[in-house]
Design a protein around this nucleic acid. Structure first.
Lengths: 114, 114
DNA sequence: ATCCTATATTCTTTTTGGGGAATATAGTTG
DNA sequence: CAACTATATTCCCCAAAAAGAATATAGGAT
């Protein structure tokens, strides 16, 4: 029950759902996600922590950057099934389309080191 | 996006998940649900409204009682898929088992008209 | 070592959400 | 009609959550 609720809660915030939809296309670092969501950096980190804690995302360090990517869903059937469904769901959603369309244009090299 | 988040949010509370698990076995009126959850009646009504607003439950009036039952999920694929999964999910959950076990013992005739 | 950069962690504020008491509404019974 | 019952709505309280500012940490560059 606790695990299930945790997954539902993790996906009950629009910004977190957007993060999932972005990560379906490619792994992203925090600053790239921040650029897309247009919220403060600490807020992004906190959202990512909630998603990580629910077994939805994982991170790998690459020097100074932390790359976030979707898990394989092995932590629970709730994650596995929902991530599977989310591959098809919301692809026609306006907010999703808008963010995904910008994905190629935003690269970490341009965002950082100002 | 909004509809999806609404379904996730509706299922991100343990009491509301318990209501869904109960309704999988039989339609229930408010006072029966209240007896199982052991929270105040207005709280039950509010939870039911949230579930109803997400397309998860419906109600039919039967005299003074209002019978709540699960929808067929036709309101959205999110509801349809999640309700389908929830038929199998959480059946081994301790809290679910406890509540479901008591289902035969609690009847509205005994609860009301005191 | 110092400086810089990307991310994480506090801290505080504001908003959201669950809970109950009191009240309102609707339907039933006499 | 009045009295009663099941449910819904309103109100308020408190805890949880989202957001940003400031700060801390960790890794790379000089």
């Amino acid at each position: 029950m606790k695990d299930f609720v945790k997954v539902m809660k993790a996906l009950s915030d629009p910004n977190r759902v957007k993060i999932v939809k972005m990560l379906q296309h490619k792994a992203l670092c925090v600053c790239e996600i921040q650029a897309h969501l247009q919220i403060a950096q600490p807020s992004v980190s906190k959202h990512l922590k909630i998603l990580e804690n629910a077994g939805i995302v994982e991170s790998t360090k690459e020097g100074l950057w932390v790359n976030y990517h979707l898990t394989d869903g092995s932590s629970s059937p709730y994650v596995s099934s929902t991530l599977g469904n989310l591959k098809h769901w919301l692809n026609d959603d306006a907010q999703t389309r808008e963010i995904v369309a910008k994905l190629p244009d935003i690269r970490r090299e341009d965002l950082c080191k100002k």
